[in-house]
Structures are given as structure tokens and as C-alpha cells.
Design a protein around this nucleic acid. Structure first.
Lengths: 265, 265
DNA sequence: CGGCACTTTGATCGTGGTCAATAAGTGTGG
DNA sequence: CCACACTTATTGACCACGATCAAAGTGCCG
């Protein structure tokens, strides 16, 4: 339907990154062993391929394209043919929907190991774009169906991931419907920190792979309100900022209580 | 964790309805043919058992308890053991979450054919309660896993339903995050009408199986705001009310435009 | 017909949105 | 390495939508 990426290939650190649609032309390197194996999912407990054995992993890798993508690059748009399913191997991305009048909302953020764009429908109900530099695994939808037949455990895994996403999205509904601006921001920071901890991040400082505008679009607020809420949390001494793209939680219990809505309305 | 139902069995039309936990003591009538078959799911395109053949349906029926439930009856609570999966065969229900301070939000409404309470986690992340009189099919989680092995198509069906719920929930996120009160109410009425049409309802009048408070808790508003929004739509001549539990859409295009957010807010 | 739950409508208040100006952080070229 | 340009964040002043508090109205049941 729409071109996912502009003309010129983005360049970072002197190495050309593949704007996503260019990957269409890449030679699919069929299973040549460990080198082609999808590290991003195979290596972790969060990923799609977590339950697969080595042989199945190689089979999977043969069906998968692995591509580096520049920050702020659309992977697919709302309304596009749902011809592929994506796994985020590294980096951060967000899923967005647009209203006819141009208002935009982010449905959720995705980190390494998360799947994106899996749907039984024929077209994507939302768009996806990277927030940071990222590595993406892409599988053709029809090849994936064939994989399901060869490795039934994979279908079970999809079901688990899908149910997990559903739970996360329901949590988001609760936050949007019932939490105040400051509570939502606390909730967001905390869940971002927890997601990074689940992925093995150590130490007190977490990545903040999003601008105030990104956060606002996720939380149903404006960028000014997000900024005010962050400032308030900082002044209370509950969080600390390190530059623009990192933060630290200094009073987790207080932040958690606020995020859970224990402030009394 | 918590008792789902109070002591006395609710009685409607002189016939005792089973408060849900009482069903635990009911004899499970194993597959005695068509009479025990789960009509609620087997008969429609929306249900869990839609893709099953007659033999598989009987097998399924043997594993399923079918129970009539009174209006406003909790089926399970947030935090309960996720020991069963439920299908709504008739009637309407809602899924709710509560915050520690007592604020309550509805995650979504469910109509005939929808599944409730399916999760890979060990406990329910939300509670479910009927809005109207309803008929529920209940399957033990472990028996369901066994069913998955006997009828792989069933797992695929669960995946589809799960993905469908995810899409609906994401839509809800968009509505909560970006639509005004009136737009949300328009969106709600329209999607309720569409859900009933998908289930075969004919004619211009739709059930409204929810009070203003129910709708408010679903849309992240107060009951007064919902009432005002409904009145406004009525005064514009876009909808009509028929008593307290039915409504009619008289200007669908206008309502749809509003619900989609084309008002340029 | 009476009682009750739900709904509607009104008046006032507060959170967060909007518009606007300043400050901090980041990247680039001299 | 510093200066400049640009992006992103912060803070302030004001306003509007929806929340809150309160009272009257309507439909539904016994």
C-alpha cells in the first residue's frame, strides 16, 4: 500500500543500514549454520524461538531475513498487506494508529524479543516504526504457516506471546482509563524498567528510547503534560534523568505505589 | 482466592439459575449426543468451536460444563486461579480490573461466542461478570490442553480469537487515548451494533446490555458524562433510545464519522 | 400506586490541553 | 575545541473538557 521507507539508505557509523523495503531485494541466505541463526530470538527467554531446539532453530533461520534498521524508520504502515511477521531482535520500536483527522496514538512500545504484526487479518491494523537503531527478523506469513505445521510448538509459542501482549494491552487500557497523568508516567517508567530487567539489563540506569512526544502519544497525553509529570517525579526525588535518553529510578516503592494508583483517586 | 458468588442462588422467571461456583457440584453430563453439544459455540462463526467437526464437537461437549448464570454475577475475580477457560454462549459480560484504591475500570465487553479468561499465566489478570442473564461454557484448563493435542485446529482457533481480542483491545486503547467523550460514546454504540450484526441480529434496534455506569467504566468517563453524550447524540438525531435497554442508530454515517475521529478535535 | 434504581440536567471546580517563550542538550563545521 | 544551529525539553499563563456535587425526572418492578 505505502512505501515504508524513503529513497536514500540511512547511514550510521559509516555502515549503510537497510531501509526496510530494500531488504526485499536481499539474498535470503538459507540455513548456513549458526551464522544465519536468529540470535535475537534464539538466545533469550522472551523471544519467539525460545522453545525451539537447535535443528528447528536452523530451519527457522532459513526462513528468516535479519536486517539492521535506522532509528525512526517505519517497518510497515496501518493498512499494509500483512504479508510478514516481525520480531525485534535488538532496539526499540512502537506500534501506532492514526485517526482520519491526523491524531496519532501509540498502541505500545516493543523491545528485543517482542513480535510485531502478527494478525489473522489480511492487513495490518496498526503501523510499526523503530524508535532506536534496531535489528529486525522478518518472516513471510505463508512460510510461517508452513513452519507452524513442521514445529507445532511454535504455534503454541505464538499463542503465549499473543496472550502476553493482550494482557499488556489490557493493562494499558486500565492506565489510560483510570490513572492521572503523573500516575501514567510513573507506570510507564516502571514498566519500561521492568521490561529491560527481564531482558537482563543490570545496574540502576535504564534506556529511555523515546522523546516526550513519543511518551505522550503512548499515554494519551500531551508532551507538555509528560514533561511536567517527569519534572514533578524528579522534584520528589523518585527518579533521576541522565541526559535525554537514560533515567534512573531512585525510589521504586513510591513510584510503584503511584503507578498502581494507590494515591487515592 | 475469593468466592465468586454470594450464598443464595439467584432466581429468574421462577427458575433457579446457577450461581457460578455452585456449578462445581453439578454432574458433568458427558457427551450424550446433540443435547449436550455446546450450541453457543458450535452454531456460529464467532465461537471457539466453529472449526470443529461433529465428532470433535461431541468430544468438546464432554469436557465442557454449560451453565445458566444470573445477571451481574461474577464468573471469576482478578487474582483467582486461572483454572478454567470460559466461553460466553448467550448474553453479555464484562471484564474488569480494580486498582488498589478501589477505582474500577472495564477492560471490555464480551458477547456470545467470545472467550474469557484464557491466559498462559497461573492467575487471572482481570475479573469477569455477567451483565445480563447469560449461558456460559466452562472448560478446565488442563482438559483444554489435552483437547489441544487431540484437535490441533482448536489451538489455531484460540490463536485467532486471541489475536482478534488483541486487535479490539488496541482499538480501545486508541479510543481512550485520543477520542473525546462524545466520540467514545459514538464509537461504543457503533461497535456494539456491529458486534450484534456479526452475530446475526437483524433490524434497526440493538440491545444495550449496560447501565450508564457500566459504559462509563468501559470508556474511562463518569456516568454523568456518558449521559450527557448520549443526550447530545439523541438531540442531533443520530440515535434513538427505546426504553433503558435498547437503542437504534438513525444516522450511521454521521455517527461513524464522529466515532472515527473526523470531527477534527 | 408506591418504591426504587437508573437517568437526566444543572452548577461549580480542577486536571490537563493549548499557546507561547525560554532553556538545555546534541550534532556539525570552522 | 569551541561556536553556532537545531532539536528536544522545561516552564508559565490561560482555557476547556470532563469530574464532582447536587437535585429533579423517568421507567420498571412489586
Amino acid at each position: 500500500m505505502s512505501r515504508a521507507v524513503g529513497r536514500g539508505a540511512a547511514v550510521i557509523e559509516g555502515r549503510p543500514l537497510h531501509p526496510f523495503d530494500a531488504a526485499r531485494g536481499l539474498p535470503r541466505r538459507p540455513g548456513t549454520g549458526a551464522a544465519s541463526r536468529c540470535q535475537g530470538c534464539g538466545a533469550r527467554s522472551v523471544g519467539l524461538c525460545a522453545p525451539l531446539g537447535p535443528a528447528a532453530l536452523d530451519d527457522m533461520a532459513a526462513e528468516t531475513e535479519r536486517v539492521a534498521v535506522a532509528p525512526r524508520t517505519p517497518l510497515f504502515h496501518q493498512g499494509d498487506d500483512a504479508s510478514h511477521v516481525y520480531t525485534l531482535a535488538e532496539g526499540a520500536a512502537r506500534l501506532t494508529r492514526v485517526l482520519p483527522d491526523g491524531r496519532q496514538a501509540a498502541i505500545g512500545f516493543r523491545l528485543a524479543g517482542d513480535i510485531m504484526g502478527f494478525t489473522p487479518a489480511t492487513e495490518h491494523a496498526f503501523g510499526a516504526e523503530t524508535l532506536t537503531r534496531a535489528t529486525i527478523c522478518r518472516v513471510d506469513r505463508r512460510r510461517l504457516d508452513a513452519m507452524f505445521r513442521r514445529h507445532p510448538v511454535l504455534e503454541r509459542r505464538f499463542l503465549e506471546l499473543c496472550a502476553g501482549e493482550l494482557a499488556a494491552t489490557q493493562d494499558h487500557v486500565l492506565a489510560l482509563g483510570r490513572l492521572t497523568a503523573q500516575e501514567r508516567v510513573a507506570h510507564f517508567l516502571l514498566s519500561l524498567a521492568e521490561a529491560q530487567e527481564r531482558r537482563g539489563r543490570r545496574g540502576p540506569v535504564f534506556d529511555l528510547p523515546a522523546t516526550r512526544t513519543d511518551i505522550a502519544e503512548l499515554l494519551g497525553l500531551t508532551l507538555e503534560t509528560v514533561s511536567r509529570a517527569v519534572s514533578a517525579l524528579r522534584k520528589r526525588g523518585w527518579i533521576k534523568l541522565h541526559g535525554l535518553s537514560a533515567f534512573e529510578i531512585t525510589e521504586r516503592p513510591s513510584l510503584a505505589a503511584l503507578a498502581a494508583g494507590e494515591g487515592g483517586a
